[in-house]
Design a protein around this nucleic acid. Structure first.
Lengths: 118, 118
DNA sequence: AGCTTGTTCTAGTAGTCGTAGAACAAATAT
DNA sequence: ATATTTGTTCTACGACTACTAGAACAAGCT
């Protein structure tokens, strides 16, 4: 749970938190059913407002990454992709090809997003 | 030059334009040296403000996609990735793997961005 | 009963987004 | 040379978002 939030970054604080939790879940650092820190608690430790943390949690809930219940807290959703080895290999290949083509990160992710949306 | 901008979208107008130009260049619809519409002209045809178009153009310039000179206009930068076939195949494989793993578009692009930044 | 935790509400400040108009400078066209 | 085109820079305004803050509330746990 060693997340870092950069208040001076170009990305909104809640979006940074969404990204970090998303990656932690995808990489298996947080497992299905595992409990996340309470919003007030995490807000205190990251020096954020509770509402900012809850906004991130609610976006992650809308995305099916976590489940939220009052009194109980936030936990990683039960249904998570099990096997990501094929995805990880595909990403490694893509990064390699993009590097060789001198493609920027922005253009690469734009192309991926376009391809996913079809 | 049939770009569409959605004023009601969640993404800022200038960002939508950046994406469309970026894709057009990456897909070879706009070739190096080719001239883009003048900011005032494109603004009129897309029903945007000139400043909004120029903001997109300037971001693309900062990214090395286009070159801007007053009096002359905007043109696609000389140096562009030549061969994207390997990238496109890698993206197709990635999309396939992500679909099979029931991975969301957001998580997939987050993972790609993370991998590119290393 | 008491505590924890997400939910919802109002509210205020700061910044971004988009529009608008104007003046200006470099490149081009006549 | 002169006029036109085009990006650059400046100020300005209304609308919206981001973030913080405090409070009251409801569901779950101890």
């Amino acid at each position: 749970m060693m997340w870092r939030i950069d208040p001076g970054g170009d990305e909104p604080l809640y979006a940074q938190l969404v990204t970090q939790v998303r990656l932690a879940v995808a990489h298996g650092e947080l497992r299905p059913g595992e409990r996340l820190p309470a919003a007030r608690e995490l807000a205190a430790s990251l020096d954020l407002n509770m509402h900012t943390v809850l906004r991130a949690y609610q976006l992650l809930r809308d995305d099916g990454v976590v489940e939220l219940r009052r009194g109980r807290g936030a936990m990683v959703a039960a249904r998570q992709p099990a096997d990501l080895t094929a995805v990880e290999r595909a990403i490694a290949d893509l990064v390699d090809a993009a590097r060789r083509a001198h493609l920027s990160t922005e253009t690469t992710t734009t192309l991926v997003k376009e391809a996913m949306h079809r």
